[in-house]
Nucleic acid binder design. Structure first.
Lengths: 226, 226
DNA sequence: AATTATTTTTAAGCAAACATTAAGCTTGCT
DNA sequence: AGCAAGCTTAATGTTTGCTTAAAAATAATT
């Protein structure tokens, strides 16, 4: 696993590098935004740790540029305390997670593992890969390995929605609005029924992916094993 | 909530303004693209209603320019029938939704509510860090280091409230009003019970954070520091 | 056009999670 | 000591979510 570190505080950058090497990741370190962009562009990393405040080019611009060039490498933003605003921007710009400095080693490693696991690939329009499953919206099929299973339209739309918003809990209200339409009269139970359908199909596929309920809040797509 | 209306058909623009005012939004109206851009740039609106066909500068250019300048205000595009092509462009350019003219009042209001709500979710509001703990309202988890613990909705809301008002003592009255609702009949004891639950969980995490009682006044979130 | 198959919606019973209540206990203050 | 404020626990009540099955609506097939 190759990880790119973009961080101008050399002290911190080097410390992180040591930690990662000890945990069997290979690393490259650069100390400014422009180099970060150049390195990231090669699309040869599995993950990028990207500081926001950087010389030459800020982290958000780097990230946006990469995303514009269809580089989908997962990115964890590093933010100093008080840069919360920037954090929000970073998530908007396509970051997968963020981590506030200073951070503890186990936390860093946990986030890295999570991001690597979480990686969603969109190979072609309407084809999503998440963990061990592939959802193809163009023929409404859900695949794990050699096993293919058919989804109904609503099942597909719901799963697509959960995959796209993988890091957020989606409330029943939001789901109804998006899948049934803002003016529909669908009840919460409709969502529950379809969540139940999806769970049945996911478990039929013996997938690592599962749908977690956050009581009073919503649903969340997760990969079970760590 | 401030809404900017950019629409050159004065008749329509004024009608929309009346509707919004009646629903307690404050509004500004401009009648061409350039003014729309100028106003939007101030980044002081919660939502922009943006027509596509506009004098001086078309709506899509306005939107793209705003996005380039990192203005992330949610935008609902207004399109005349037959401008479907343009609609697609608008969504590409970063619009959140679109609405075909002519539209009905309840539909307009529903879309506005939806867009405003979505904004909150996208910004991932609800992740709070205080001292050594992190509260994530989207999955109701409370974390210290690698240890995660589950909170119920009420526990989460209460802790969120205490974190947000970390320097102030929050009285039971205020807490009841905010968490249980101003018209609830919850007793002081309800608050005490939940404070007790939270303390148990904080101490389970061995967190530096604790809830201090200020007798006769309220509760206060503190970092113990040792 | 009628029949059949598929998908979506509705309804109901059940289980688990959560919230509330009340009683007895502890603490701090005068 | 005596009182009031606050704490804790267990029981009881309520809500939320899950799961089925069957009805209704769509779509496909003959």
């Amino acid at each position: 696993m190759r990880i790119l570190i973009v961080e101008d505080e050399r002290h911190l950058a080097d410390a992180v590098e040591q930690i990662l090497k000890k945990n069997n990741y290979s690393t490259d370190v650069v100390y400014d935004g422009e180099s970060g962009l150049d390195y990231g562009r090669t699309d040869s990393y599995d993950l990028i740790l990207l500081d926001i405040m950087l010389p030459k080019m800020d982290g958000i611009t780097v990230l946006k540029t990469l995303r514009k060039e269809h580089i989908q490498t997962p990115v964890i933003m590093l933010t100093a305390k008080g840069e919360v605003e920037d954090t929000v921007w970073g998530l908007d710009a396509g970051a997968d997670d963020y981590l506030a400095k200073p951070f503890a080693t186990p936390e860093l490693l946990a986030r890295i593992r999570a991001s690597l696991r979480r990686k969603v690939e969109i190979t072609q329009e309407g084809v999503y890969t998440f963990s061990d499953i592939e959802l193809n919206m163009s023929n409404l099929s859900l695949r794990k390995g050699a096993t293919n299973i058919h989804l109904t339209l609503k099942e597909g739309e719901l799963l697509e929605f959960l995959i796209v918003r993988k890091n957020m809990a989606s409330s029943k209200e939001t789901i109804i609005e998006k899948i049934w339409g803002y003016d529909s009269e669908a009840e919460h139970n409709n969502v529950e029924v379809y969540i139940s359908f999806l769970r049945k199909k996911l478990s039929f596929l013996k997938s690592e992916v599962s749908i977690t309920t956050v009581r009073g809040v919503g649903y969340l797509l997760k990969e079970s094993l760590g």
